[in-house]
Amino acid sequence: MRLLLHDTLATLPFTLAFAEGWVAPAADLTVERRPELAAAALGPGDAALLPTPEASLLVASHPIAPAVACVTDRAGTVSLRTPVRPDEVERTPVRLAGVSSAAELLARGTLRAFYGIEPAHWERGESAEAQAVVLEGIEALRPAEGGFAEDLSRAWFILTALPFVSHLLVVPEEGGAAVAERVVALLAEARAAAHERRRAWRQPWVEREGIPRERFDEVMGGQRHALEPDDRRALTALLSHGGRGTPYQAPPEWRFVESRSRGVEESRSDETTDNVTPSSS
């Protein structure tokens, strides 16, 4: 079986342990980290932690395991950049600078409704005319060289009173709860390994990537890693608000498969209190 992981900043708590070799999967399970991950990449026997809109295309074959997800109602990893105040931008092409489908739908759901920006069209390539650029991941947290930067996750929460669910874990229909249990346990182990070593890796990591430590801690500390029952409305809201003009539409019904354990326990209070970097010994 393969476990495919969208390798981006929001999923870092799950992917880092595999990148560093702190956790090794069983011999019959292959973990693949991918900088881009779409529904089409999954085979019938694959599990994946992937952007939420992609899960909407897999409802018939891959139910959601809610014990693992990336959810925020605070600071997030998607940023809008404009040369002037966003409320001064009326109509402009919008550049989606290498962002996932989740970030795209978040932008589509907030630019007009929250900021009053009318997208002339949406561009995934270079666009010299674009006065609105959407960034995701590490690029979104780097300081703006000029102009204004807006956190779209925060805008979404103010607009809808719902969290932004960027990533969901889907598992193959065949195997059901047993497969979910196994994958959830592995991802819980990976997240625990990264959390236990956080004082050793965080400061060097943010320095290498050029991210302000305070901003990184705010984002990581504000993220939850399981989909609670009250969060499920946010899935449909994201596709309803942002899916128009895209292949992503809210399914008539989301399908879920529960594992026996919740898998990922929250430790939000610990996430933002480790600013001391230990010696290399």
Results as ranks from 00 to 15, higher is better:
M1L: 08
R2Y: 04
T8I: 02
P13D: 06
L16V: 10
F18W: 10
E20N: 09
T30G: 14
T30Y: 10
V31G: 02
V31Y: 00
R34D: 14
L42W: 09
D46C: 11
L49C: 10
L50V: 13
L50N: 12
T52A: 14
E54D: 15
E54I: 05
L58C: 13
H62L: 13
I64P: 06
V71G: 08
S79C: 14
S79W: 04
R81K: 00
E88V: 00
V89G: 05
R91S: 10
P93R: 02
P93Y: 01
R95D: 01
L96S: 06
S100A: 12
A103I: 10
A103M: 13
L106Y: 10
R108W: 09
R108A: 03
R112A: 13
A113R: 15
Y115W: 06
G116F: 12
E118N: 04
P119G: 02
E123A: 15
G125L: 08
E126V: 08
S127F: 03
E129P: 01
E129W: 00
E129C: 01
A130K: 14
A144C: 03
A144M: 01
E145R: 03
G147F: 00
G147V: 04
F148H: 01
A149E: 00
A149S: 00
E150T: 01
D151C: 11
W156F: 08
I158K: 07
A161E: 15
P163G: 08
V165P: 13
L168R: 03
E174F: 02
R182M: 04
A185N: 12
A188N: 07
E189I: 03
A192N: 15
E196Q: 15
R197P: 14
R199C: 13
A200C: 05
Q203D: 15
W205M: 15
I211G: 03
R215D: 05
R215A: 07
D217F: 03
V219E: 13
A226D: 12
P229F: 12
D231I: 05
D231N: 09
R232L: 10
R232I: 09
L235C: 09
T236R: 08
L238C: 08
L239W: 09
S240H: 10
G242W: 04
P247T: 09
Y248L: 09
Q249Y: 01
A250I: 06
E266C: 06
D270N: 09
D274R: 15
D274I: 08
D274Q: 14
D274W: 14
V276Q: 08
T277C: 14
S280A: 05
S281E: 11
S281A: 13
